[in-house]
């Protein structure tokens, strides 16, 4: 059984609808049925809850008790909250998470905010992978009382050039960033992207024209999206076995080392 690592799933409830698979037991069953051997799980609760420490404690416990060895927790950190440094410390030291997931747009800051730079420094010191969600959904389908702009990742280039040891993954990338714009990050070897929001026929082939294969990660955005969307993209593009293996597992393994 080859490894299949999904770097972009979420537990708990999407605030605006129930999703098939939003019970952890169902989610794990569906992922295992599809051959997923490991899934990096954030929490939808991390978008709006202010008790982030509670969100992360529940996430860690859920992954431990119901994850069946598949779920790996990625805690939320909101640098606009007082005392966010303690949340980050707990993710690393108490919950032993390999990384954290950020939602700058839902937490109300842009990537030029000084607290974001401090957060990157602390994450780097603790060798945490930093996942940055550029979007959660199409802006045209947001709840009308809750429109949230996409994250502009442009400031990341200078921030990451100044922090060469930091490992960053952008998730839900391509409603915020076009393939052409992705070239702005070409000199950053430790910046990774997932394929969850990649669109267009032969999308991965197109992506490979812009960035090397070792920076592409399998991510589904399940259960908000159907898991099969990411999986079928591997078949829609003409990928060799080596590219397939890199995207579906080896790049994630390398990132998490």
């Amino acid at each position: 059984m080859p490894a299949l690592i999904d770097t972009n799933i979420s537990l708990s409830r999407w605030p605006f609808r129930r999703l098939p698979g939003d019970e952890t037991s169902d989610l794990v069953r569906l992922l295992r049925k599809q051959g997923v051997t490991e899934a990096w799980a954030g929490s939808f609760d991390g978008l709006f809850h202010r008790d982030i420490a509670g969100v992360n404690a529940r996430l860690a416990a859920e992954c431990r008790t119901s994850g069946k060895g598949v779920l790996v927790p990625f805690g939320s950190v909101n640098p606009m909250l007082p005392g966010w440094e303690e949340d980050l410390r707990r993710c690393h030291s108490e919950h032993h998470m390999p990384g954290i997931r950020l939602h700058p747009n839902y937490h109300g800051y842009d990537l030029q905010h000084p607290e974001f730079a401090r957060l990157l420094d602390l994450a780097g010191e603790n060798k945490l992978i930093v996942q940055i969600a550029l979007s959660m959904e199409d802006e045209r389908t947001h709840h009308p009382l809750m429109p949230v702009p996409h994250v502009d990742p442009a400031p990341l280039k200078d921030l990451l050039l100044a922090r060469p040891a930091l490992k960053v993954q952008l998730i839900n990338v391509f409603r915020s960033l076009s393939l052409a714009q992705l070239e702005m990050f070409s000199g950053l070897p430790d910046l990774f992207v997932d394929i969850a929001m990649l669109e267009g026929v032969g999308g991965i082939e197109e992506l490979l024209e812009k960035i090397p294969v070792n920076r592409i990660l399998f991510g589904s955005h399940f259960p908000f999206f159907h898991f099969q969307s990411a999986l079928l993209k591997l078949d829609e593009s003409d990928l060799g076995w080596f590219q397939r293996e890199a995207i579906t597992s080896q790049n994630a393994i390398t990132l998490k080392k």
Binding site: L198, E199, G200, V201, G203, F225, H226, F227, Q228, S229, L231, L232, K233, D235, E236
Partner: peptide, 14 residues
């Protein structure tokens, strides 16, 4: 071609 065949098939397969 603006959308992926894969993402749209998934709506039914999944």
């Amino acid at each position: 071609g603006g959308r992926s065949f894969a993402s749209q098939l998934a709506k039914v397969y999944g």
